[in-house]
Amino acid sequence: MSDAPMVRFENVTKRYGSLTVLDELNLDIAANEKVSIIGPSGSGKTTVLRMLMTLERINEGVIWVDGEPLTHEQRNGRMAPAGDRHLRRVRGKIGMVFQHFNLFPHMTALANCMEAPVSVLGLSKQEAEARAAELLDMVGLADKKGHYPIQLSGGQKQRVAIARALAMRPKVMLFDEVTSALDPELVGEVLNVIRKLGAEHNLTMLMVTHQMGFAREFSDRVCFFYGGRIAEQGPPDKLFNDPENERTRQFLSAVLEAG
């Protein structure tokens, strides 16, 4: 693990009109670190992932990925907002899995996983197919390669989505409430895949989750967001057993009470 963080948020502020969603966020994530983001809705936690995936523009600050700025680039010796080419290059280091899967409905599971490796990375069809098949096998869907998303259960769709993101060989994986849209009995199969990923791959993982048990067991660090700021962060045992912030305590007792 090198000293430079894999991801760095430096005084990042995000506003929607007059509403400040994230207020001067500073957050470093080390290579291979697993970080969970928890907090009440509206606390800005999903926005953190969406900014990192460049789905949202930031208003102030700089986001760094793997030692270089994502949101900015050097132009004539000055830092300027990143252009499309720069964004595309740096964005390639990041993969994302969405709450609602966002699989391409007109493509089979295999084709979903092959599209970007072929058209973006320039892999041949055979290489891409081998890579996709291997990943679908890893997520336990070797027998569903030819299925279309509509023929899959929610848990299966989400596993295809994970395989699709991994096929791009990202260094950082973002998981945005990936089990929130699933029926309860399907949550486990998706979490198992994420566990396996964490154990077998060198991946920096950043997840927004409502699965407190999983966050506790899986993460190296948990960040509790409240009102657009990190109210408290630390190792899961500390944060869950002995939270220092009153907000954290209220949130945890509310969530854990609800089951």
Binding site: M53, T54, L55, R88, R91, G92, I94, G95, M96, F98, H100, F101, N102, L103, F104, E115, A116, S119, V120, R164, A165, M168
Partner: peptide, 18 residues
């Protein structure tokens, strides 16, 4: 077309044309 399709395309780094 669902907004998520655009977002997934961005996340996979597909070109606008593609």
């Amino acid at each position: 077309v669902d907004e998520g399709q655009w977002e997934a395309s961005t996340a996979l780094n597909l070109s606008p044309l593609r």
